[in-house]
Amino acid sequence: MENGLFDRLEQKGISRRDFMKFCGYITATLGLSAAYVPRVAEVFAAGKQRPAVIWLHMAECTGCSEALLRSMYPWIDELVLEILAIEYHETIMAAAGRQAEEQLEYALNKYKGKFICVVEGAIPTKDRGIYGRVGKHTMLELGKKVTKEALATITIGNCSSFGGVQAAKPNPTNAKSIDDALGIKSVKIAGCPPNPVNFVGTVVNYLLLGKLPATDSYGRPLFAYSKTVHDQCPRRSHYEAGEFVTQFGSEEAAKGWCLYEMGCKGPETYNNCPIVKFNDGTSWPVEAGHPCIGCSEPNFWDQMAPFYEQK
């Protein structure tokens, strides 16, 4: 790889070692061979035009945006300053009010057909969408208008992917996933909230290979969602040996035995939590003694409850 790249990176305060470590991490998450590491590195060496992103907030809790703010490989400031051009994002953009709306129009015009739309949150559809509005538009209108012009739509989190808590019973606003509300097909970074690594991995895949990653039938990228949590769980040998935790705080819990009897939904849940873990690879729920609640699966609030019992 050209040396100029490292000079430019160093100007940004990123050491060669840090940078290659990060590229190795992303390459591994994507399931690509080590031979791809230098190519991944090139993707992050900031070409002239950064890919534009318009990020929409529908009915949600902003947990997915918060998850993105925890991105450490690459750092979140690199993501927003050097890797992507996040043209619209209600939580962290500096503009507000009318200026924010103008910015959305501007970005839609400038990047027509060329931007990635990221959607966080479900869309209330009852009474023609009146229960969710941003500025003058209902979320339903806004979603239609923006995704129509997008190169591709990535739905981040369970709400935009599958409806999430908004669509759980009794669903007073008839909230729906983005695909169901708008009749489109999106790539789904499922989870509540998902690991930001899987969002970044999807974007890298796009920048590197010029296309979005291969997905399962629900639209979840295979690099992250092709295996069950159960199949990758470090507690699996305890499961096979019939060594189960039957009460929180017990000796078995302190030993890290299997949480199946405590309601663990790992066997029905597709995600890479045990491998990539959260917050700089620090931990994931089962490691911290809590059963998996299945948060990357469709309708998990209704489907997976009760969380602390096997059905």
């Binding site: 819990a253 620090t282 911290a288 003694g289």
Partner: peptide, 26 residues
């Protein structure tokens, strides 16, 4: 990372439950 250590992840840490907390091993 403080939340991940005793909560499993952040955002939406999971270990706080009725009766106490699940992260005895950690």
């Amino acid at each position: 990372r403080m939340h991940a250590i005793f909560g499993g992840k952040n955002p939406h840490l999971q270990t706080v439950i009725a009766g106490g907390i699940t992260c005895v091993k950690d």
